[in-house]
């Protein structure tokens, strides 16, 4: 389980997170919603270990291990996965090689044997098929020339292959049509189980229709201002953030 206490972080001396308290029990999916600039993406980056964010206070303990201060690759090895809002393009890096390198790095850290190219391709093809991705996405350079939807699906493909214990999805639904949305939701639902938790950062109720969260949190100006059940997302869809944000202020 993920236990975040009093987490504060800044970038370029500008405070973004101002004391986040959040617990995600094992097996649960929590949604994080909130207006633009609230700090939702920062929360994802800080948990994944991006170096340009400076943690100024607090802790984030995952399955008994303090994440803050660990290298990003060590967090990945511990089971943390961030699906990027804007997946990074890697010109000159073949997607299949990238995925196999990542998978084998994770497998090494788990003490599992590495997969050779043939074993890997068999596994990857099965996943691309399940995610309704064309086979040639494995042959192309990582995210280069991918449409917005293809990039998001490529993130879900990585998640499916790496099988994280904590997935943080940063607006993975944005820019997706209804069919793709369902595929992404199914991808997360397929991982659901007692050893899997997820933080789903989203602006829209839409995704949460397919990926029903246990809890919904509203983040505003670097703090969680309200938490509730799935019905909170529907309420926000109707009335917007203004009321909740004003109430908290």
């Amino acid at each position: 389980m993920l236990n975040i206490r009093g987490l504060a972080a800044s970038i370029d001396d500008k405070p973004i997170l101002k004391g986040i308290d959040l617990i995600v029990p094992p097996g649960e999916v929590h949604a994080v919603m909130g207006p633009n600039g609230a700090g939702k993406s920062t929360l994802g980056y800080v948990l994944a270990g991006r170096e340009d964010y400076v943690v100024t206070a607090g802790s984030a303990v995952f399955n008994g291990t303090e994440l803050l201060g660990m290298d990003p690759e060590a967090r990945a090895a511990a089971g943390v996965f961030l699906a990027f809002q804007a997946p990074i393009e890697l010109p000159g890096v073949n997607n299949a090689n990238f995925l196999r390198t990542a998978l084998n790095a994770i497998r090494r850290s788990r003490g599992e044997g590495e997969l050779d190219a043939v074993q890997f391709l068999k596994l990857a093809r099965a996943e691309t098929k399940r995610l309704a991705m064309p086979d040639d996405m494995l042959k192309r350079n990582v995210n280069v020339g991918f449409s917005g939807g293809e990039k998001k699906r490529n993130e879900v493909l990585q998640m499916a292959l790496l099988r994280p214990k904590l997935a943080i999805l940063d607006e993975t639904d944005s820019g997706l049509d209804i069919d793709a949305l369902k595929i992404v939701a199914d991808g997360v639902n397929a991982l659901r189980g007692p050893d899997f938790s997820a933080l789903v950062i989203t602006h829209h109720q839409r995704l949460l229709d397919h990926l029903v969260p246990n809890r919904v949190h509203v983040l505003s100006a670097g703090r969680i201002v309200r938490s509730g059940g799935p019905e909170l997302a529907r309420e926000l869809e109707k009335s917007g953030y203004a009321g909740i944000v004003a109430e908290a202020a």
Binding site: R50, E51, E73, A76, I88, L90, F98, A105, I106
Partner: peptide, 18 residues
């Protein structure tokens, strides 16, 4: 790009080599 690779579990030195 380095962070993207590291966030997928690839060690920093290997990420730079890639």
């Amino acid at each position: 790009q380095i962070f993207y690779l590291r966030s997928r579990g690839v060690p920093a030195a290997e990420a730079r080599a890639i």
